[in-house]
């Protein structure tokens, strides 16, 4: 079998790469081993550290109103000091909010603290947007086959921007929760913003709604 020059070059580069990766791996391992030998314990031996599993969220929320149902429950994480996403499930029924048809909503609320935590004491202004997934009689991500293309725009996913604030009360003791927060938010919906932009009738005061909630921070 004969190789032409290009194939030879490719083989040569591949060989070099493999050897290099192999070497770097082994040196990396040696390096890590070296570190671990010299590592000193950061805490005293009599201190017990309990690390939360990833499946335990940083906070739980219970919310009233706010486009995602009469009541909704959520759990989320504090990814950074400022960014905290929360996944909500909201319910609206005939006896639970006065809707003749039951509505289930899944919502991912992306919330950012507007200022450095602690700057305004125990009040934290927040803003962000929720991505809401609704399940109704006539919501679709992709149009059913019997419609001509572009007959309707997708209406399963709505984006709901919000702003609001939370009053966080720290709790003493080593309980499961270390703080409780009371929050309120004003939110609106992508469709409502669109009508605010393109009509004079829909003014800024017509598009907002108010919600209240409680946050529980897990120790």
């Amino acid at each position: 079998m004969r190789y032409n020059t290009a194939t030879k070059h490719i083989l040569l580069i591949a060989l070099l790469l493999i050897t290099k990766i192999g070497f770097s791996q082994s040196t990396g391992d040696q390096y890590r081993q070296g570190i671990s030998i010299e590592e000193k314990p950061a805490v005293q031996y009599d201190t017990i550290l309990i690390r939360k599993g990833w499946y335990i969220p940083d906070h739980l929320k219970l919310q009233y109103a706010g486009l995602i149902g009469f009541m909704s429950i959520g759990a989320g994480y504090e990814i950074t000091d400022r960014y905290e996403p929360t996944l909500f499930y909201g319910l609206l029924t005939e006896h639970f909010g006065g809707s003749s048809v039951t509505v289930h909503t899944i919502s991912l609320k992306n919330s950012w603290k507007l200022f450095r935590p602690g700057l305004l004491g125990d009040i934290t202004p927040k803003a962000g947007f929720s991505v809401n997934l609704g399940f109704t009689n006539n919501t679709f991500h992709r149009l059913p086959a019997h419609y001509p293309s572009n007959y309707y725009f997708q209406n399963r996913i709505h984006v709901a921007p919000f702003f609001g604030g939370e009053w966080k009360i720290n709790m003493s003791g080593d309980g499961f929760f270390n703080a409780v927060g009371l929050y309120t938010e004003m939110s609106t919906l992508d469709n409502y913003i669109l009508e605010f932009i393109r009509t004079k009738y829909v003014t800024i005061d017509k598009i907002w709604n108010l919600s209240f909630g409680v946050s529980l921070y897990i120790n």
Binding site: A65, G66, L67, I68, G69, F70, G90, L92, E94, G97, G98, S99, S100, V101, V103, T105, I123, G134, T136, T139, H158, G165, W167, T184, M186, L189, N191, D205, K206, W208, N209, L210, S211
Partner: peptide
């Protein structure tokens, strides 16, 4: 102040509580 703003919002805006855009009631 926080409470005053809240009360103003509740009283000042029409349909201030909205459970869902999919509500039928």
């Amino acid at each position: 102040h926080f409470s005053a703003v809240l009360l103003f919002l509740i009283g000042g805006c029409n349909e201030i509580i909205e459970y869902s855009p999919y509500k039928a009631g």
